[in-house]
Design a protein around this nucleic acid. Sequence first.
DNA 1: TGAATTGTTATCGT
DNA 2: AACGATAACAATTC
Length: 268
Amino acid sequence: MPELPEVETTVRTFRPLVKGRRFVGFTSSWPRQVIPSAPKVDRAISGRKIVKLERRAKQIIFHLDDDSGLLIHLKMSGRLDWLASSGDRARHVRARFRLSGGDTLLFCDARKFGRIRHVADPQAALAHLGPEPLDPAFDSKILAEILHSRKRRIKPLLLDQTVIAGLGNIYSDESLHRANIHPLSLSNRLCWDEIKRLHRSIRQVLREGIKRCGTSFDWAYLGGRMQHYLRVYQRGGKACLACGRPIEVIRVGQRSTHFCPKCQKICK
DNA sequence: TGAATTGTTATCGT
DNA sequence: AACGATAACAATTC
């Protein structure tokens, strides 16, 4: 499930391949994923040059030369592929972007949760998202304001994209473990020291994830190595690498949540 | 077979 | 009224 590091890896991979090219044509075999509609997106992007490719939260943004943008959200199982490298072996192809120069960018998505969206103003379309955790402006003081202005359990709060953008289930659990904070702790009860630790661990774990090209643990995302460095995620019942106690798995806000009951103290 | 997965939306409770 | 928690949903894999 692509989170910030996986999407960042995707953007870094495809940036040199698409930059400066033009979209020539777009087709979809599952039009429900395309907003406003497949023919409208085709008309909107065809002939437009890609001036910049970037990531915001978990979304990929193709900035076009008329200031509009093509947004791709990979959601659970979405993936970009390059037709030239995968040939006819690419599985679950849902959309094709023909590019100038003759290459084709594929959008593959087994579960069809991903979304392809054309917007006139990408900035406005993404304005609801919270701050980027790796932005230099995101300091521990800002995190403290975010946490203290709400009274919510810290785990679901970290997953809320309007609060902080880019964390998913894996990197939330890893951040909390590295900061020694219990996932059920209330946001307004965290002390200054805990907030500083959380700020540090969020940025650390995301940077490490990017360095290792993301986390691969099933067919949905391949090529990453971060799965070998996770301390709690999908390690339920196994020994905590810090204290040896078994990692517990609980359900928080309909999400599986992994933590060490000894290392991660609760703040109610 | 059903659990797991993301983010949005609707709904219920405080 | 505003905020937070909760459930349903889209669709597929193992």
